[in-house]
Computed example of a mutant assay.
Amino acid sequence: MDQRLFQAALTGDIQALHELLVEDPLILERVDLAPVSDTPLHIAALARKNEFAKEMIRLKPSFASEMNIDGFSPIHMAFANRQVELVKVLLKVDSSLANFKDRSERLPLHLAAMRGRIEVLGVLISACPEPA
């Protein structure tokens, strides 16, 4: 992934993201095709940059279902980091994201429960009760 895109995701710089898109309109397509460990959405979710993450979902919704090299999807990261707002956005994109398992066969629900993330558990159960 382009280091500037990584840095924009890490810092939540939406303006830098749009400048990169003007410079290279296919930059997100290249990330999608390349064997990378994390998409910009993974980075933003991990760094708690919710506004950037929401913009990334708007621009490239397919990133919501990408698994990184560790087997985590952005929703796993959002659950683990108590990002209730981002969890809601991701579930609106695709409620089946709640059923994505990591490499250890854990659902986002499991990660949230293991870490005592009660607030995100409630979001999951109300949005998608099947895994519960």
Rank of each mutant, 00 (worst) to 15 (best):
K49S: 02
D94N: 15
D32H: 13
K88H: 12
K88E: 15
P74A: 11
D38Q: 12
L20S: 00
S37L: 08
F52H: 04
A98Y: 03
N81R: 13
P74Q: 06
D94V: 04
G71E: 02
I69E: 15
R48P: 00
S96P: 01
L28C: 02
P74R: 05
V84A: 14
G71P: 06
L107H: 08
P35T: 15
P108S: 10
P25T: 05
P61F: 06
K101N: 08
I14R: 09
V87G: 00
E66V: 11
K54N: 14
R48M: 10
L86T: 05
L107S: 05
K92A: 13
K92M: 11
T39P: 00
F72D: 01
L97C: 06
V93Y: 06
E105G: 10
L90P: 00
K49I: 06
D24T: 09
L20T: 04
R30K: 12
L41Y: 04
A45I: 02
E85Q: 14
I14C: 10
D94M: 08
L46H: 03
H42E: 02
V87N: 02
D32T: 12
P35I: 13
R30M: 07
A44E: 05
D24L: 02
S73L: 06
L21V: 00
D38A: 09
A34S: 14
L90C: 06
L17I: 04
F100L: 15
L28Y: 01
P35D: 15
L46E: 08
N99L: 12
E19K: 09
V22M: 03
V89F: 10
A44M: 07
S62P: 05
K60P: 01
V31R: 01
V22W: 00
D32R: 13
L46A: 07
I43Y: 01
L17V: 04
L91A: 07
N68S: 10
V36K: 03
N68D: 14
E23M: 11
I57Q: 04
E23C: 11
I27S: 05
M56I: 10
A78Y: 04
L59S: 04
I57D: 00
N99I: 05
L46F: 12
K49C: 11
L26D: 07
R48N: 12
R103N: 15
A80W: 08
N68G: 14
A45S: 15
L46C: 09
I69Q: 15
V22T: 10
G71S: 10
P108M: 09
S104D: 14
L86Y: 01
E29P: 02
L21D: 01
D94A: 08
I69N: 15
S62V: 12
V22K: 11
R103T: 13
I75Y: 05
E85M: 11
N68A: 11
L86F: 06
P108Q: 07
L46I: 13
L33E: 09
E51T: 13
S37H: 13
A47G: 03
S65A: 15
S65L: 07
L97H: 01
D38Y: 08
L21N: 00
S73H: 03
S62C: 08
A16Q: 08
